[in-house]
Amino acid sequence: METKQPKLIVKDLKKIYEDKCALNSVSFDVKEGEFLSILGPSGCGKTTILRILIGLLDATSGTIIKDGVDITNAPASSRGMGIVFQNYALFENMTVLGNVEYALKIRKETKAVARERALSMIERMGLSEHINKKPGELSGGQQQRVAIARTMILNPEIILFDEPMSALDVATRISLRKEIKDIQKEFGTTMIYITHDQEEAFAMSDRLMVMKEANIEQIDTPENIIDHPANEYVQSFVIDNLQAKINSLVKYLR
């Protein structure tokens, strides 16, 4: 594992909006099959990173290398990545099945193949009984499953999540959390996961990236971050908050 080249290498990524610097030369890499969380307060540049990685936004400077290939300027749909948005962004006018098979149909798969793959993905996500419902008739958690299925159907090598759980209640979060981890293991998908929930980040991640105001403060495994916080900020923002979260969660579970 250690000697293999990283799945994704990000070098000196910089983003300046008009006059505001949203990313200040950040560099990091992600290993094949790894679950990397990005943790940081609102406005620190997390979404900006994801949007640049998948190609929805152009970086001011810097390079992105995937499997040794420079994809900095590749179109979003050819990067082998999928993204799951915070507020799902489902197609409200289509059924669950319609949402999931849409991309395949547009990509000129035969109808039968598209249908079959969509059905098995829907089943994998435990949505079989809702197949003909519209998103508006589903719970938040179910809607997020549809969004994940819609992304997974194209077999992306990397999935990006932008605060996928922030609109969900605690119980749904915990079950969906497990679901996402299971998918990661089953398909070997690399995942980059934005959250502002310390507890979630620690529970799910192989490694954690802590950000503050356009910069990366520390990137390491959860254990190492707890044992050796890089600075005062990581100590207070990550560890102290984590403790508080755990306390409140324990209260909730009782």
């Binding site: 190609g55 979003a76 749909s77 993204i83 948005f85 962004a89 489902l90 849409y102 991309a103 547009i106």
Partner: peptide
């Protein structure tokens, strides 16, 4: 939802098709 066209972009569907569909 503000991200509908972005979803299209990442799954290889043009803005025009998203508008229509």
């Amino acid at each position: 939802n503000e991200n509908l066209e972005n979803v299209g972009k990442t799954i290889g569907v043009s803005r025009f098709r998203i508008i229509i569909d």
